[in-house]
């Protein structure tokens, strides 16, 4: 009998190797899961790519206005948030490592820390949004938009892009937090031991991607023109 022998049970059973029925073994399943996540991240790059294209176009058209508008963002809190997110990625990397070594409780701990750091990021972001709202820099529906100087309209474009891009990023982060919390609970119960840690690695990739998007957003909005 070849090693690729499949279980006889109907439905989506798991073979004696623990892999889903369509795979030969866990290593096979892992390679598929990771390829799936990388492919998904490629779609994400294109998804964010549309917004980055918009940013590049308008920043080229209205460089002056974008420079001025960027000055109204909070460099301090933006910088802190960048640090928070980078540290969270380190925590996720530790979680992936711990899962690979079969240390479920340690994995859960690192994932929980990452989620907590994600929450800090969201809280800081909310604080920044609130400030923008108070300063009438939030061009939402009928809210008044007040921007000093001759470039008010173009600055409004800047803030449109700012809110949508950071907003979509924050949404991705919230999804990531949900995922790592679920994985934290599962790994606490030892679900990923014995080489079954492919989901941990896949979610880790997602988290790093969301982090990497911020690494581009931060200079484009906060540092540009300073």
């Amino acid at each position: 009998m070849r090693p690729a022998a499949k279980p006889e049970a109907p439905g989506l059973g798991r073979s004696e190797t623990g892999a889903a029925g369509q795979f030969a073994d866990l290593e096979h399943e892992r390679s598929a899961s990771l390829l799936g996540m990388w492919t998904f991240l490629a779609t994400e790059v294109l998804f964010f790519g549309g917004m980055f294209t918009g940013y590049i176009v308008y920043r080229t058209f209205y460089a002056e206005a974008f420079r001025e508008a960027g000055g109204h963002l909070d460099l301090f809190w933006g910088g802190v948030n960048t640090a928070v997110l980078l540290v969270s990625s380190a925590a996720v990397a530790m979680a992936v490592r711990a899962a690979g070594q079969g240390r479920g409780k340690s994995t859960a701990g690192w994932f929980f820390s990452a989620a907590a750091l994600g929450a800090v990021f969201i809280a800081i972001k909310a604080h920044e949004y609130t400030r923008d709202y108070r300063e009438h820099l939030m061009p939402l529906r009928d809210l008044p938009f007040r921007f000093p100087g001759p470039h008010a309209d173009q600055a409004r474009l800047f803030f449109n892009l700012y809110f949508v891009m950071t907003g979509v990023h924050a949404l991705h982060l919230l999804i990531g937090m949900g995922l790592v919390l679920v994985l934290a609970a599962l790994s606490w119960r030892g679900r990923f031991s014995g080489g079954r840690d492919a989901p941990v690695e896949a979610v880790g990739l997602y988290w790093h991607f969301v982090d990497a998007v911020w690494v581009f957003l931060y200079p484009l909005f906060y540092l540009m023109g300073r």
Binding site: G54, P139, D153, F163, V164
Partner: peptide, 9 residues
């Protein structure tokens, strides 16, 4: 939001 709104540029 006025991404494609000519009035804002």
């Amino acid at each position: 939001f006025g991404f494609f709104d000519p009035r804002l540029g």
